[in-house]
Design a protein around this nucleic acid. Structure first.
Lengths: 149, 149
DNA sequence: GTACATTAAATGTATGTACATATATTTGCA
DNA sequence: TGCAAATATATGTACATACATTTAATGTAC
């Protein structure tokens, strides 16, 4: 459905206005779909993304700084997301021995197991994007990179 | 800058994974720029969007339901956004005479004046998207619509 | 015309975001 | 050595999001 119809607004001031609205709307649409699929695993999207970063480092520890660097939303509060994951025993946190300002964060076996359990769902979600051909997807990614230049 | 470099992740499971990440990242990037520009006007992006919808209806009133229908994020809490706008005296709210369950919301003169004041900034923001040609922007919008089909 | 469902909005709770500030540790340098 | 600056993280506050529940008004079936 065209963005004009989705938000019941017939015309835009410019094509740039339209693409901006469309971008924000589509990102929200995607996040909503993902969040719904994640709910049964009792985890949120930001928490999942942090877990994936930790798995990428495993068995080496990560720090909060490294999480922030790799997170999609760089201003979000990694400390508090780690709080939630720690409460669910999906990660461990302890003061880094070589730099006591930093905190070493590791994914636990339970965390790794959760990611495995979620894998089929994640693949199914990605499959939901196949309304685009691979060329379309590449082109879309290219245009988004260009937009941000 | 390519999304691979932005989030320091060299490769993705699939081009669909990449475009998903890119979309969420770019939408966040855009919102961050907008939010910063909005800050000097002491208003947030959702509040601005509600004001614009109200201006579109002016001088006819809108209801909370109508706001939700037209908002980008349909699950957000229109009531509380209207609360904030009412506290700043940018909108008025009173029980609808013909249906006392509903609430008539109108933009005030101060609200209209604020939108006028913000207009040059908004245009300048849109101008910031001109890294894309108009054709690029159309193509991007088309691909986003297709993605959601 | 009462009972039950539906509708419109508000409220409560948990989470996350944005940003300022605080605390502790380490580093650099006079 | 001692002290200021930089670094790593945590905390506080305001706002927004997601979603369940509540309250009030209206519609409808019997």
């Amino acid at each position: 459905m065209r963005i004009e119809d989705e938000i019941k607004q017939a015309n835009f001031q410019s094509v740039y206005q339209k693409v901006y609205i469309n971008l924000v709307y589509t990102a929200g649409w995607l996040e909503l779909r993902q969040a719904a699929a994640f709910k049964e695993f009792n985890i949120t999207l930001p928490q999942y993304n942090v877990l994936r970063i930790l798995r990428g480092q495993h068995p080496r520890p990560s720090t909060v700084n490294m999480l922030i660097e790799r997170m999609l939303d760089k201003t979000s509060n990694a400390s508090r997301i780690v709080d939630k994951l720690e409460a669910k025993q999906l990660v461990t946190r302890r003061v880094c021995p070589s730099n006591r300002r930093a905190v070493d964060i590791c994914i636990t076996d339970a965390g790794l197991a959760l990611l495995d359990t979620m894998q089929p769902m994640v693949e199914q979600q990605a499959h939901g994007l196949h309304k685009l051909s691979e060329q379309d997807a590449e082109q879309l990614s290219y245009l988004l990179d260009k937009l941000r230049d």
